[in-house]
Design a protein around this nucleic acid. Structure first.
Length: 306
DNA sequence: AAGTTTGACAACCGCCAACCA
DNA sequence: GTGGTTGGCGGTTGTCAAACT
């Protein structure tokens, strides 16, 4: 074989492109039941015709229950600019300062909004600057690194932020602040049209039922790397069990799961199911989650001959 | 109304580092 | 110590919808 590593999977046998709701549900359910100890093996175990990497990306960037979607606030945007100024294209590091935000999302925001905006503002500054203006004055203004990072965007050189002078870490939680004004800004409300959590039109469970405050904001614990697999493994998903006897966490997770289905637009005659089973959907251990829900979905594993 | 352009975002690709046998 | 495997990261591309002509 020549140089390079073997592909992570057989590219001819994996599906590519946008994920279908059925695939989302399949992946979500599998991870909640079994965790994700091995991404490479996960697609096969879950019955998905996807590359393990693709599953990981989909989970991290979209399906994780703690992922925060919706527009970035001006404060968040400014923080991204500052962080990028300090550490460059270290998107994962930048994302670590934004609970619930993903590196991919921040990267997209930078590439589509902030980069252009900064270039424009730099141009304006250059136009406004007098001929006698020295480069050192620019440096002292704090724009030097920013300018450098704009010019050398792909260098990826890192300067470890000296714990970032401009950043007062203790304040960072204000991105998920409990201050009402900040919460109002951050709430996945009307100004967050893409939020996965905002819709309540079709939801059969109210936000309060699934643990979402009225303002639409989900409080995510700082220890956001909860092992949802363990969490769900601890639940009793057996059909016979009485939902009333499930621990609170089980019910809450089940509510969330139902909420996810709604948000994905996957509800089909689940009303009775929810009523009959006190909201907890029945999931068979072998599980073919989406299959019963989406008998006609074109991309469902069922239709692909699994 | 139809075609084209632009913007936003999801997803893929390839590289690299960490881990393990 | 070495080679293989895996997860993670950053760059790039693809897709779709909105805006524009």
């Amino acid at each position: 074989m020549g140089r390079g590593r073997a592909p992570c999977c057989d590219k001819t046998k994996v599906k590519k492109g946008p994920w279908s709701p059925a695939e989302d549900l399949c992946l979500t359910t599998f991870i909640q039941n079994h965790g994700h100890t091995n991404w490479r093996a996960l697609p096969k175990q879950a019955g998905l015709l996807r590359c393990g990497k693709s599953c990981r990306l989909r989970w991290i960037n979209y399906l994780r229950p703690d992922v925060k979607r919706g527009n970035f606030t001006p404060q968040e945007e400014q923080t991204i600019i500052n962080l990028h100024n300090s550490i460059g294209n270290k998107w994962s590091k930048i994302a670590s300062y934004f609970p619930g935000r993903t590196d991919n999302e921040i990267k997209n925001v930078w590439n589509t909004h902030l980069k252009k905006r900064l270039i424009m503002s730099n141009k304006n500054e250059a136009l406004l600057a007098s001929p006698s203006c020295t480069s050192s004055s620019i440096t002292s203004s704090g724009n030097h690194n920013m300018e450098k990072s704009l010019l050398n965007d792909d260098q990826g050189e890192t300067q470890e932020p000296e714990i970032m002078n401009w950043i007062e870490k203790p304040e960072f939680p204000k991105l998920k602040s409990t201050h009402p004004n900040d919460q109002a800004k951050q709430a996945f409300s009307s100004d967050s049209p893409t939020s996965s959590y905002t819709s309540n039109e079709t939801s059969e469970f109210s936000k309060s039922e699934v643990g979402i405050p009225d303002n639409g904001k989900i409080e995510i614990p700082l220890e956001s790397d909860i092992d949802f697999g363990e969490l769900f493994d601890s639940l009793d998903w057996n059909q016979d069990s009485n939902p009333e006897e499930k621990p609170d966490g089980g019910i809450e997770c089940s509510k969330w799961f139902g909420f996810l289905e709604n948000e994905l637009g996957l509800t089909c005659d689940m009303d009775n199911l929810a009523k009959d089973q006190n909201i907890v959907p029945n999931l068979e251990p072998e599980f073919s989650p989406g299959l019963d829900y989406f008998p006609i979905w074109p991309c469902s594993p069922q239709n692909l001959g699994i």
